[in-house]
């Protein structure tokens, strides 16, 4: 096997590896919330109060983090074909809104208003309420 042939083979293998890397990177799915490590465990009231008191500090502390939040269910909504839990915040007009993952369609039907639940999800930030995305029900 001469040197030119070896270089051509190595070049082809490198090209193949690059193409495979780009293909898998391009088609990479969002992180699986079931296996993601929890960064913060907190009650829904404390989480809502943290954002209301100092949004900038709370953004740095919670946004893009995987959070387990415990709170009482104030509302269960099904809007635009998505189930969402509104957990008790610091007051009547202030909630922790948990946008449920599609995997929770059956679990959410077992929940009741006033029940305390533990939810795991990704914190997206704060509007009038704290917004949590891709949420799963840890225990109901």
């Amino acid at each position: 096997m001469n040197n030119r042939f070896k270089i051509a083979i190595i070049g082809l293998l490198a090209l193949l590896a690059s193409c495979l890397y780009l293909y898998f990177e391009f088609n990479r799915l969002p992180e699986d919330i079931f296996t993601a490590d929890t960064d913060v465990k907190i009650t829904s009231r404390t989480l809502a109060k943290s954002f209301k008191t100092n949004e900038t500090r709370a953004n740095a502390e919670f946004v893009e983090k995987t959070i387990e939040v415990v709170g009482s269910i104030e509302e269960i909504t099904n809007i635009n074909n998505r189930y969402t839990l509104l957990l008790q915040g610091r007051s009547k007009a202030n909630y922790v809104i948990c946008d449920l993952s599609a995997s929770e369609l059956e679990e959410v039907k077992k929940l009741q208003l006033g029940q305390t639940v533990r939810i795991k999800g990704i914190c997206a930030g704060y509007l009038m309420d704290v917004i949590m995305l891709n949420c799963i029900i840890i225990n109901g």
């Binding site: 969002p30 997206a124 930030g125 009038m128 995305l133």
Partner: peptide, 16 residues
């Protein structure tokens, strides 16, 4: 109207 830009959900992580 007020919305969080990080609350947009994409099919692929790289796009997001």
């Amino acid at each position: 109207v007020n919305m969080l830009m990080r609350a947009f959900v994409f099919k692929k992580a790289l796009m997001e």
